[in-house]
Design a binder for these strands. Structure first.
Length: 572
DNA sequence: GCCGTTTTCGGCCCGACTGTTTTCAGTCG
């Protein structure tokens, strides 16, 4: 039974939560959280690394002790430390800290005063009116607990970036439109272009914070006001999305933007750098003693701590500070680098627009080329084409090509990789195509070895240029299938095969970590929208976000090449 | 519990808002 990185990370986070309630050494607690983050950031399976004899204590934030605990988890599936802690406090006590306003200290107080050990215990105590009597608690807190329990909605739900935009853009316009607001930005993981965001963090520059906050909390979509002060406020929108607004004076805007953009780990590293220089960094600026030396722009903040500006997409404390220090930050790809889209569908299978409409839409976006890649015959529910239908379809592409100048239309197909790794069309059919995208659309539950070998076998076919959405995950809906990514990447590099970043907001597959692995493994990436309509071509920018978060530059991406370079690359 | 171009010991980021207090602890980001 292989242990996933996410399981180890979850156990470490759980240990941290429990130690927090025990009021253990806060730095020890942080060590567990940092280690959990490091483990999540590994593209490779930790269990595999261990098996291959790698020294895990060389990973950042993991020392001899935690390396030993990882090994224990991988070998036994258990962590003895958790049993130790359970003697003191119940495992399920952590649940109650999901209630806003209940943190580790109050959880402990509730446990000690009323022997509360779970959400159910808490609910019973709250309904019986026993909470308000505990020191540090009062009637308001008791009522809040009852309200939150009644609502039930305690699980953190992150929304996909594309959906967050739908709420963020009009809200930002509203804030910018508020009298007295000089400038405003959306910060947080939204600005870092993370694939999902937990809440929206908005920053505004204004002299009068209160006026801005007062108008913020009456925004049309606000359902509840969680907190409301002079310079900051938190609300919940009807959609359930939480929004934090912070207002600072203009001279502090850069420092506040830096602080509010995060990530937390990046901020901590920056603040530590400031400390090393005898300075203090907070959201109001960079300070020498009590004197504010700068902070109007992010550039000034980075200058003060001796670094070139670091793009928000890289601010995850995944080596960007060290790279910046050495002047080795990557040149990141931008939309302007993209010369074409190598994955889209038409009415021939499950798309909504014709070949001509898709091509015209690509021309309108300034592209040199577009690959028309409808589904193969096994995808019956998606209108996949059998050989005869494909032949007619290719003829139709020829007609549009003759008719429509100004763009190279590639005859392509998104061909199913069957369970045994063979392809859905025979080689003589594949021969007629300019580009073959191979994709897994069924049999997701093979074990890691079988799934990996299946895809590598598909890549053994010299017709295959691109593996589409390599992990198969759907954000928030379907986990990636089991795959040895390191083996897959090596195989792709050896065969001159490309891996896709599928730019569809639900997929974004490869993810940022895998993109970075691809770069390190020397695998080129193709960013394709998988558009099923002309509008879907605009999802390219979400794929670019993921690529940028994965440190990719124009050189790492196939579809930054001009037509002649691309055509050479497609010949394996 | 981790970490080191000052260090193998002694450090480890910083501030706003709320509710319960009667000056502040706890929570959150």
């Amino acid at each position: 039974m292989p242990v996933h990185n996410s399981e180890i990370a979850t156990m470490f986070d759980h240990v941290a939560d429990l130690l927090d309630i025990q009021q253990a050494n806060p730095f020890r607690i942080r060590a567990y959280r940092n280690a959990a983050a490091t483990i999540r950031d590994q593209g490779r399976n930790i269990a595999d690394m261990l098996e291959e004899g790698e020294d895990l204590s060389e990973l950042p934030g993991i020392g001899v002790d935690l390396a030993g605990k990882i090994s224990e988890i991988v070998k036994t599936g258990h962590l003895g430390l958790l049993d130790e802690i359970a003697k003191d406090i119940p495992d399920t006590l952590v649940e109650i800290t999901a209630i806003p306003g209940i943190g580790p200290k109050r959880a402990r107080a509730l446990h000690e005063a009323l022997d509360i050990g779970s959400l159910d215990d808490l609910e019973a105590a709250a309904e019986a009116g026993k909470i308000a009597g505990i020191s540090g608690f009062g009637p308001k807190t008791q009522q809040k607990i009852r309200d939150e329990l009644k609502k039930g909605d305690l699980a953190e739900h992150r929304v996909r970036l594309a959906m967050a935009e739908d709420f963020a853009i009009p809200l930002l316009a509203y804030i910018k439109d508020t009298p007295g607001v000089q400038t405003a930005e959306i910060a947080g993981s939204y600005r870092r272009r993370k694939e999902t965001v937990g809440d929206l963090d908005i920053l505004a520059a204004a002299q009068d914070g209160k006026g801005v906050i007062d108008r913020f909390v009456v925004y049309d979509e606000v359902e509840t006001i969680v907190s409301q002060g002079e310079t900051r406020s938190t609300v919940k929108l009807r959609s359930g999305l939480q929004v934090d607004l912070r207002v600072v004076p203009k001279v502090s805007f850069g420092a506040a933007l830096h602080y509010f953009t995060g990530s937390k780990a990046h901020n901590i590293a920056c603040r530590r750098r400031a400390q090393d220089r005898g300075l203090k960094l907070n959201e109001y600026g960079v300070f020498d003693g009590k004197t504010r030396i700068c902070g109007a722009t992010e550039q000034e903040v980075y200058d003060a701590i001796g670094l070139p500006p670091i793009p928000p997409v890289l601010r995850e404390n995944r080596g960007e500070i060290e790279a910046a220090e050495k002047g080795a930050l990557p040149e990141l790809i931008t939309l302007a680098d993209i010369r074409g889209d190598l994955h889209c569908h038409t009415t021939a299978s499950d798309g909504r627009n014709s070949i001509r409409e898709m091509a015209e839409a690509a021309i309108a976006r300034g592209y040199e080329y577009l690959a028309i890649s409808d589904h193969s015959k096994s995808q019956t529910q998606a209108g996949g084409l059998d050989e005869a239908a494909l032949a007619k379809h290719l003829d139709e592409i020829d007609r549009v090509r003759d008719d429509l100048g100004g763009i190279h239309i590639l005859k392509a197909s998104e061909v199913d990789i069957l369970k045994d790794g063979s392809l859905d069309y025979d080689d003589d059919v594949l021969d007629k195509l300019d580009l073959v995208i191979a994709a897994v659309h069924a049999n997701f539950d093979l074990d890691e070895d079988k799934q990996t070998e299946r895809i590598i076998r598909a890549m053994d076919n010299r017709h295959v240029n691109i593996i589409a959405h390599p992990t198969g995950r759907l954000i928030g809906e379907r986990r990636p299938y089991a795959l040895n990514m390191k083996r897959l990447m090596k195989a792709a590099a050896d065969r001159g095969c490309f891996l896709e970043i599928n730019a569809e907001p639900l997929r974004l597959d490869l993810n940022d970590i895998n993109c970075r692995m691809a770069k390190d493994a020397g695998v080129m990436v193709s960013i394709g929208t998988d558009a099923h309509s002309t509008g879907g071509l605009d999802h390219m920018r979400f794929g670019l976000d993921q690529a940028r978060r994965g440190w990719l530059g124009p050189d790492n991406v196939v579809n930054t090449r001009n037509w002649s370079a691309l055509s050479k690359l497609l010949r394996r």
